[in-house]
Structure formats: structure tokens, C-alpha cells
Simulated scan of single mutants.
Amino acid sequence: MALKVAIVGRPNVGKSTLFNRLVGKRLALVDDRPGVTRDRRYADGNIGDMDLTLIDTAGYEDVTDDSLESRMREQTEAALEDGDLILFMMDAREGVTSLDRIFADRLRKQHKPVILLANKSESRESGGGIGEAYALGFGEPVAISAEHGE
């Protein structure tokens, strides 16, 4: 049975790009505008020789009303419940935001393994953001570039 991996984070940090990379084809829409991914999407993929069931999620917003953003948050919450492992993605170029901190607090209540990914770390300006990521409390962030496959 494949390990279920939920890819989560705030809008526009590269979740769908990583999902597509690990699945090996373009199943999820990728766009610079936030909110393109609205529901959970499941697909089989792998890292090395490890088979995975990947769960792509909408960007996490800290909203609990009747809005689209709130429904997207609910989809992310459902993915967190369903996943065995959580890949928490942040944008290394932007550094840690207040929404990253709010979401990190939420993830600590999951009692599931969390791996912090510092995406968009291919450029020089990402160094500060990678350093800030330690403050989220998930150990050493894994510096990646989902777009470039690094």
C-alpha cells in the first residue's frame, strides 16, 4: 500500500508544480494567480523507488466563513486527515509569512510527520527565507525547486 502524502501550504508556493513533478505528468493546473486549485486531487507518483499516493491541495487560508477561501481551507483540512505524511511547502524567496506561522501551528496539532519544504530555493535571494524556515519548528527545511526539479 502506497504512503499517502499531502502537499500543503499557503497559496502560490508551488504545491501543484511539485505534485505534477512527482506524478510525472501535468495533472494539476499551475498558474501564477492564487486559487486555481480548489479541491483535493489524488494521483500515484514516487520519489526514487518509493510509491506514493500524492494529494494536491488548495492554498491554505485562515478563513472560516462561507467564502471560496474557506471551502478551500476545508479541502486542505480533509487532505491533512487523509495523509500519512505532510509536505509543508513555503516560498523561500518570500520567507516565512504570518499565514505560514498560523498554518504551522495548525500542523503541530495533526500529530503526523511533517517535512518542511523551502521551495523556489534555486535563486540567491532564497537564502534568508530558508534560514527563517527553521523558526517554524519542523527541523531543517529541505531546499527544493519544484519547477526546476532540484
Rank of each mutant, 00 (worst) to 15 (best):
I130S: 02
V5A: 04
R73E: 08
A58H: 05
R101I: 10
L29A: 14
V30C: 08
P113D: 14
L29E: 14
R71V: 03
D32Y: 15
I86P: 10
E61W: 03
N12G: 03
N46Q: 15
L27E: 15
F138D: 00
L27T: 12
A143R: 02
E94H: 10
E150F: 02
P113V: 10
F138N: 01
E74L: 13
G45M: 14
A43I: 14
E69M: 11
A118D: 11
A78I: 13
E132M: 07
Y60G: 04
T76F: 04
I47Y: 15
K109D: 13
A133V: 03
V23D: 11
I7R: 03
L54E: 11
D65I: 05
R71P: 01
E122V: 05
G127C: 02
T17W: 09
R93C: 05
S126E: 04
E122R: 07
R26I: 05
H148Q: 03
L18E: 07
H111T: 07
S16C: 11
Y134V: 01
F88P: 04
I144V: 02
E125L: 09
G95D: 04
A146Y: 00
F19P: 05
S121G: 14
T57N: 11
L136N: 03
E94R: 10
L80H: 12
N12Y: 05
G137E: 01
I115L: 14
D65A: 09
L3V: 04
L116V: 13
K112C: 03
K4F: 02
G137C: 00
L136F: 01
F88K: 06
R73W: 02
E122S: 11
L136P: 01
K109N: 10
R26D: 13
M72C: 10
D51W: 07
V114P: 13
V8S: 03
E77G: 01
R41E: 14
R33K: 15
L52N: 11
L22H: 11
N119A: 08
T17S: 14
G95M: 06
A79M: 05
V36I: 14
M89P: 02
N119R: 08
E122K: 08
L52M: 12
A135Y: 00
L3W: 01
T53F: 08
R71K: 14
G14C: 03
D105V: 07
T53C: 12
L52V: 09
R101W: 03
E122N: 13
L107H: 08
D56W: 00
V13C: 06
T57K: 12
F88R: 04
G9K: 08
R101C: 06
A146M: 00
Y60P: 04
D39K: 15
T57A: 12
I47P: 07
